[in-house]
Design a protein around this nucleic acid. Sequence first.
DNA 1: TCCCGATGTTAGCGAGCATTAACCGAGATG
DNA 2: CATCTCGGTTAATGCTCGCTAACATCGGGA
Lengths: 222, 222
Amino acid sequence: MATTPSTAEILGDARADESPAAVTVAATATERSRQKADRRQAILTAAATLFAQRGYAGVTIEDLGAAVGVSGPAVYRHFPGKAAVLAAILQGASRTLLDGAERVLVEASDPAVSLRELIAFHVDFALGDADVILVQDRELEQLDLGARHEVRLLQRQYVEHWVDTLARLRPDRAETELRIRAHAAFGLLNSTPHSARIPGRRPADGTIRGILEEMTWASLMS
Amino acid sequence: MATTPSTAEILGDARADESPAAVTVAATATERSRQKADRRQAILTAAATLFAQRGYAGVTIEDLGAAVGVSGPAVYRHFPGKAAVLAAILQGASRTLLDGAERVLVEASDPAVSLRELIAFHVDFALGDADVILVQDRELEQLDLGARHEVRLLQRQYVEHWVDTLARLRPDRAETELRIRAHAAFGLLNSTPHSARIPGRRPADGTIRGILEEMTWASLMS
DNA sequence: TCCCGATGTTAGCGAGCATTAACCGAGATG
DNA sequence: CATCTCGGTTAATGCTCGCTAACATCGGGA
């Protein structure tokens, strides 16, 4: 489904090695825990899709279980409650975004290159994990205060990286304006989940990617 | 609250004249019906705010009534049910947008002017009726099939006006690309409700308006 | 002034849903 | 092999909420 490393793979405990009999493990490596991690991850992925389609309140715990082949209260073996599932999704998304931005900024030195790669990274994420993006800016307020603050903190840091990069490119502009511009750019980039839902068949990801990158760059630097 | 003619005023039966004793009316003009229209409108406005804050499913009929000073089931005197309130909001919003676009296109002849005014109009709406915009692209799927199709139809026509205008400006581009660009532009423009929520105090509407118009133009024409 | 319909109010009713309880089989562990 | 822990199951439980019923009030046309 996704062309980029999906949030799921980045988030979960799942290790990269897939060798079935290799028991040369270091950390928690029992067969049971492996399956448990898989199921947990499956729930998160399915939940993101369902939440994106019907909204957090429109999905029951029963739905969550059914989507991964177990039924109802089994979900409580993996999450303390429905809210915790949403929290895990949102925290994972903002973590992934923040980590990605920081990786980009460590490697690139030229601010123009940084911005271009920030954009490319965000496009990748939006295209690959459309469900997560959609849930991310729809259901934040459903979180309890603690989780909400944590997600907001991560998001704020992410925005700050964009604003800093923009500030190096356009030192003439007020930080307030740059912040507005960054938010507007996110709106543009995150529009994919919405628009992808409307038409019947959409063009290749590659096409969309190019257009979105071009538009975002132009809007930020105009 | 809103600086532009709010959806509320455009939508409802409320006439523009506010003269208290002017009984020079034509249509249904009894005092009762006036008050009823006011209350209906108050419910719609309050509902938009509440839906924007907590999501459709997170708002009870009781909340809706309380927000306008009546309690609970009184809402049923104005709407057949909770879903009808949402439907009225969404249909009103898409009608307002479509009507606005058509008014712009009738008056302006030069496509560049048209686009500039389409953008300005949309910015006005997004800034003035942020709640409605937010509900609009969040809660569409909560509607029953009939209402959803109607809203989608209106939205599609609105998009079509943008695409047509863009096509006249950039006949070299495929319609598919123009459609993607239009949707991305809406994402950018509709980002205001999201970003306006995050910081403590935001700059004047005028400032934001200019930035958004500039960014949108640049992104579409890049 | 009298009566009717419109607009509210306060009690339910019934469904849906998150969560908990009680129980079960099967891998890991000794 | 006995046991214990886990991940699962199905059956409550209790609350929330949309919606309906039955009753009050009042504005306005005859």
